[in-house]
């Protein structure tokens, strides 16, 4: 970004000068993930390297804003809206940089949506969405946690609990 010819490091902000990893040509940089959460984010996105894509992970990189942050660079992969929604719940501070031909083509904070649909399963075994009804499980996003719009069960005031129920269809 600033003063580095625009493309160096694909959207690293000024405070991550200590991070030197391969820049990517096309793909996504997920920045400002809370320190230590990178592997969880990869897990939730279903990225394990088995598809041969280049994935670089920086963990506990010093950051002015977060103290320590994680950075993920994923070659040849852009996030779907569902994936962005999940990211907004588990890593609300994250920023997403879309990289095309080494340039940052788009950079945005993840917005905490009012509602997420089709990205979490309801933890209540008696919920109508637990059967084979033709509806996507849908949750209202609360200040803390999320709530099934059907059975009204509240989930994810504990983050581990939320991560356990991520189900990106």
């Amino acid at each position: 970004m600033s003063g580095r010819g625009g493309d160096v490091g694909n959207g690293q902000s000024d405070d991550d000068h200590e991070l030197r990893v391969t820049k990517i040509r096309n793909g996504t940089v997920i920045d400002h993930v809370s320190g230590g959460l990178a592997l969880t984010v990869l897990g939730v996105l279903g990225i394990d390297g088995s598809a041969g894509e280049v994935v670089s992970v920086g963990m506990n990189v010093p950051s002015d804003r977060l103290g320590r942050k994680d950075v993920l660079k994923i070659e040849k992969r852009e996030l779907t809206q569902n994936e962005v929604d999940v990211l907004s719940l588990i890593a609300p501070e994250a920023t997403i940089n879309i990289v095309r031909e080494y340039e940052v083509a788009g950079k945005h904070r993840v917005d905490r949506p009012e509602e997420v649909s089709g990205v979490l399963s309801c933890p209540n075994p008696d919920c109508i969405t637990a059967g084979n009804e033709p509806v996507a499980s849908t949750f209202d996003v609360l200040d803390e946690g999320v709530r099934c719009v059907y059975c009204e069960t509240i989930l994810g005031t504990d983050q581990a609990d939320l991560i356990d129920h991520v189900d990106i269809g």
Binding site: I128, A130, V135, V149
Partner: peptide, 25 residues
């Protein structure tokens, strides 16, 4: 017997739907 059944069912009908009990809901 399922919680949220009435809410879901209401999305599929145009006539008024009255919940007469949905599980522990």
């Amino acid at each position: 017997p399922s919680q949220g059944a009435a809410r879901m069912a209401s999305e599929f009908v145009s006539v008024p739907l009255i919940n007469a009990g949905d599980g522990a809901g």
